[in-house]
Amino acid sequence: MTTALRAGIRRGLTEFGISLRTPGDVLFIIIGLVIVAVVLWLNRDAEFAPGAPLGWYVVPSVLTIQLLFIATYGLATVIVTEREDGTLMRARSLPSGLRVYAVGVTTRTLAEIACTVLPTLVIAAIILGGDLGLDALGVLQVLAMLALGTVALTPFGFVVGTVFRNPRAVGGWGFLVVGAVALVSGLFQPLSTLPAWVQPIGLVLPLYWIGHAMRSAFLPDEFGVVEIWGGWHVGLAFAIVAAWAVVGLVLAPRLLRRVARRETASGIEARRQAALQRA
């Protein structure tokens, strides 16, 4: 078990190292950071309410969207692609292979989140003149929610990655779904200002609550009025996200095993032919 864990972490870090040396992958991270910088720069003087810069609302939303993108959309893309090229099949042919594979992609995802979130915070701090509205407790709360949020969302990346068969389906539909989830979870504008029928959807999903806990760290206490029940419910937010994490952790390994079991060499060969036809 410890060998699988160690081998998986090493595998994930090697994969991330390869990503950092792949121009396309690095460009993807940089473009994301540039967009964040531009949005914050354009709104650097705007106020969300008297005394509170709009940035204090934007930054927690940005962090949550980044988390969502990397842990579900990005992870799902990796899994669908590696299922098609036979990496998953290879994992099955090795002792402890599937466990090492799962730990590997999770490690890679964590490394990617760290390498996106930290520069984002630095850029935001510079543009907002050093004041992020965070105290020591707030920083702790943000880091805790980033960690818990990753645990809650990563399994769903596995789920999406194993449900779709075609990498392009994830690229198209996955992108739309992620955008829609971000919208109904109040990440673009406060959930309380969205139509009443949307609000229950947002409340059931973990994203609103990840964002909620982030905002409560960045925004002064009195700004809880824009939240759904007119106040901060940080304990509830952590509880709901933790519940999603448990569901995901139970579901994801089963699904991965099931999908890997169905995978066969002849199936991979058939899809390789299909991929060649598309190209």
Binding site: I18, D85, M89
Partner: peptide
């Protein structure tokens, strides 16, 4: 699994890896 070696018909996996580290990773298992 550790007593059985498998070479399937067609494989395109780990295209971005280098030969040495890939084999070392698998040997470790």
């Amino acid at each position: 699994r550790a007593r059985v070696g498998v070479v399937l018909q067609s494989w395109r996996d780990h295209a971005r890896w280098r030969v040495g580290p890939l084999l070392e990773q698998f040997a470790e298992l």
